[in-house]
Design a binder for these strands. Structure first.
Lengths: 243, 243
DNA sequence: TAAATAGTGTCTTTTAGACAATATGGT
DNA sequence: ACCATATTGTCTAAAAGACACTATTTA
């Protein structure tokens, strides 16, 4: 394995071969969240191949060294393959690497999570992939026995989602183009699992200037509610305090 | 590359070989910070081998599939090799994967940062490694041209350090066993690059209960100052607001 | 007019910032 | 006594929580 010491860098690189070394498997896995019927859902796929054939898992796969220029490209590509969605909120959560997490080999996975508005994709439907993809409520997903250590990955992603919901405006990514403040508050509450004070919530969101009012109203049976839309991109805007 | 479809999982795994696939290089890199002479320093190594032979870089290297059970083991092992320190604060920052970041191959690196108390290692000295390791002030390091994309990695680690210093008590990891509140405040200020209000700082730290007073004083020429020590482990304790 | 939902007023609480005042120890 | 540094007192400011109140729409 030892190389002669008097090579130029060019010579060294030209004779370097990754396959000469013991390397781990490296994959990207994603927890893709959406709100459906007032519940937090996560997209799972049923594995077509070994290992864990037939079991539910987070969507993911190998980096395609040809197609992907960066690891974010891999994540975006996987998201597109599974949901047909191009570029919503996508964030790296953590990288988990362990000798035993994959029966095939020492394995590293880079975990992402994504938030998407279900209604923008439900119109298109989920783009077919070679695996069965299906939305599960978070509760269902947590009660399934998932492939690999995906149970743990799902928990990591969920707690990241919850904690960022407490000090950013992340859940706006789950909303359709126009939404009411009550609907937005609802999304926050579903993710967090507890209720928020209406006044405090509105003050917080409006004072931050991350959404702006439109001149449209939503008629939903009772009193009309004003519709809002996203003002600017920075959804990772941080509030000075958590809720 | 396609396998027959009727294998059992056991058969599939037994014939699986990572080397049959195009895989990225996977490494761990670390930004190891310490305070020396009232300045934030980072440990750099001078590369012994291609690529970037002779240039300064963050310490790091390949996962050792034999020695390391997890990727955190790799990080701890690297830290031990470079500094002789066993288990201080060590946190994963981010994973960067790009086709071009390493001239040898598509490469993924998992970036960690560590905070150590310089005086606990200066007594031992830096354990020799096959590379020249040397402390640089952050300023020096940022003005060097570092190997690979290590300049960018260093910036990522630095901004993570700074931002966590604003809402956790992380810098306690940089302190010796016993320290005064003024010394602690000083460490915060050096990392942040701006001054803090004395009263507010003390109130914040003491009310959080993360350090406890001892019955010892420090005589430093002027008025004695009370010595404190760490109360509990959770240095990733989060304050409700940032400073 | 009643019910239900949207939206507001306002007082309290928490925690950080400002800055002056006091305490202590060495010279 | 004086200086420098440690330590505390106290007022202000910002932003969240509590909760009651008003406004609008439909039935």
């Amino acid at each position: 394995m030892k190389k002669p010491v008097d090579l130029t860098e060019k010579q060294y690189i030209s004779q370097y071969n990754v396959h000469d070394f013991d390397v781990p498997l490296t994959t990207v896995d994603m927890a893709i969240f959406a709100l459906i019927d007032q519940k937090l859902h996560v997209l799972l796929v049923q594995r077509n191949d070994h290992p864990f054939k037939g079991e539910w898992a987070l969507p993911g796969g190998f980096i395609d060294l040809k197609k992907d220029k960066t690891i974010n490209d891999t994540a975006h590509r996987k998201l597109l393959e599974k949901t047909g969605i191009h570029s919503p909120y996508l964030e790296q959560v953590q990288t988990i690497g362990q000798a035993k997490r994959d029966p095939r080999a020492w394995s590293v996975t880079i975990l992402y999570f994504a938030l998407i508005d279900y209604f923008t994709i439900s119109s298109k439907g989920i783009v077919p992939s070679n695996e069965q993809a299906q939305w599960h409520t978070l509760e269902q997903a947590q009660n399934l026995s998932l492939a690999f250590d995906h149970q743990q990955l799902l928990n990591l992603a969920t707690s990241r989602l919850r904690s960022k919901t407490r000090y950013t405006a992340l859940p706006i990514s789950l909303m359709p183009e126009y939404f009411t403040l009550t609907e937005l508050q609802n999304s926050f509450e579903i993710i967090l699992g507890y209720e928020l004070d209406k006044k405090a919530f509105r003050r917080r969101i409006l004072d931050a200037g991350i959404i702006k009012p439109t001149d449209m109203n939503k008629r939903s049976g009772k009193r009309d509610a004003q519709l809002f839309c996203i003002n600017q991109l920075p959804l990772d805007f941080q509030f000075p305090r958590a809720i």
